[in-house]
Design a protein around this nucleic acid. Structure first.
Lengths: 282, 282
DNA sequence: CAGGAGCGATACCCGGGCGGTATCGCCCGC
DNA sequence: GCGGGCGATACCGCCCGGGTATCGCTCCTG
């Protein structure tokens, strides 16, 4: 199977429409139909159920969609990492670290300081990204290391090392009835009719249904809370640097959050190894 | 990058010789040279240092070799898993479980029994393989689940669940001076001049240097020990079913061995999930 | 030191396959 | 019943991947 075929299949499987997929790929529809047909013939199975109105995935098609995405990520990662290796040889070598924007700032700063103090440390390019984006960056080679947060982020498929564990707090607008309490139970904040929990985007960019407002980053979140339109439950470390018009109340029964450093298996470049060492040394 | 290019590059990087690589790929040498050249041009970097006698990998080339192998495994896995999904839809569905030959027999039997008793259990095809082979089978899609043994096997890149932990024993021929001791220290058996530790093959099939005899499987190992040509340190469970002319002596200071069940991340088919459940339920 | 062998690069040609346009066949909705 | 939407098919042209022949370079060798 060639990556071209995989790219074509993923496009059709995502669009569920040959015409749109072809447009997205920048080719005409007939070659696309033929490519998918050839793939199906060689695999000896139907991948797409052609109805008169659009198409649907078969069981085998669903499996191939999942596997093809992983394979294409791996190919992309190969290209990116090779390019970076070439760059590092003839210029300034660097590692790319992905971290969730607005989380673990303090830990991150300490980590960068500790690593920079190591002999032979290279430059660290920090990429701040939306929640849940780190895994993708690591998979497709745009990042070499990432800070993830269990149980929110999926650490499957990576090597990880635990760095820090902490409880969670509810962030509320100053003046809210609950904001004066010494602590609250999780159930009390998850279904406040006046302050619903916000909805974060899924990996594909769409939002789950629900009453809460849609948020994409930390600024939007704090702003919405300040406006009295939402509340949130976040790790303790999120209270540092909180706006004046917000308060944080501990939620003892919320699950603990563990910050971990993660890297792709078998890619212990000396730089990544150094970062991991610096992170765990403390 | 197309998988064809990756396959070509891996062939040359492994052979370090364009002619041989071309023969192995079943093509002529000139198209291979051109393909690699094109790859280098598009990546904007040299991947291979052409000396007058053969070639050598550059830094970027070494990175691409590692990444390309992973990517090709992923593509192969995509194809195999799709084929199996298609087969499962129209015939007898099955999961493939990889296990080291001659290890964890008892645990494996119990696991299979426990799973078979579950409602909706499908057939389990057990693939017994050489040590260290399981990870490869899992990576390239020939297996869906595997039993691995930490710290011997590399579990990086998989989801795992611990099943069992045990100490190790030294296996010696009956009559050996150490065989009557209640226990021995690891250092005592690792450098016996008369009974060297055997050498296991590396993933690429070659053997490390050393005094011990080369072994490829469990039968060869026991036979060599019985012949008085080697000794071995193996998990306790290896003493069950030992030949009469061999004895096992506990080695308390040897690292504990943990048997884990592993599966590729994000591939929790119901069958794999059932197996994991059956394995961890006890 | 000249000759030859080994190895990768280059030159050139051929054919298959990929992509394009035109059109068909089918099903659904009005 | 008819038109429109959608995927499949037919057919064509061109590019690119693969083949053969040959070159250029570097060692080794007698």
């Amino acid at each position: 199977m060639e990556t071209r075929e995989l790219r074509y299949f993923v496009a059709v499987a995502e669009e569920l429409h040959f015409g749109r997929a072809a447009r997205r790929l920048g080719i005409a529809q007939p070659p696309l139909s033929r490519a998918i047909g050839g793939l199906e013939r060689r695999l000896g199975t139907l991948l797409l159920e052609r109805g008169s109105r659009g198409v649907a995935l078969t069981g085998a098609g669903a499996v191939l969609l999942r596997e093809a995405r992983a394979a294409l990520d791996a190919v992309e990662a190969a290209e990116r990492r090779t390019r970076r290796a070439a760059l590092a040889a003839t210029g300034r070598p660097a590692v790319v670290l992905a971290a969730k924007a607005g989380a673990s700032d303090e830990l991150l700063a300490k980590l960068l300081d500790a690593y920079a103090a190591e002999p032979g440390a290279v430059a660290v390019d920090v990429v701040l990204c939306g929640p849940g984006e780190q895994a993708r960056l690591l998979h497709d080679g745009r990042a070499d290391v990432a800070l993830l947060h269990r149980p929110f982020d999926d650490t499957a498929g990576f090597d990880t090392e635990d760095l820090h564990s902490e409880g969670q707090v509810a962030v509320l607008p100053v003046g809210h009835p609950l904001s004066v309490r010494p602590h609250v139970r999780l159930a009390e904040v998850t279904d406040l009719p006046d302050l619903p929990l916000p909805r974060w985007p899924r990996p594909d960019g769409t939002f789950p249904d629900g009453p809460g407002p849609q948020v994409r980053d930390h600024t939007q979140l704090t702003q919405l809370i300040a406006l009295g339109r939402a509340c949130a439950v976040v790790p303790e470390s999120g209270r540092t640097g909180l706006r004046e018009d917000l308060t944080a109340v501990p939620v003892p029964d919320a699950p603990h959050v563990t910050t971990v450093i993660a890297w792709p298996p078998h890619s212990r470049s000396t730089a990544v190894a150094g970062l991991v060492r610096a992170a765990t040394a403390r």
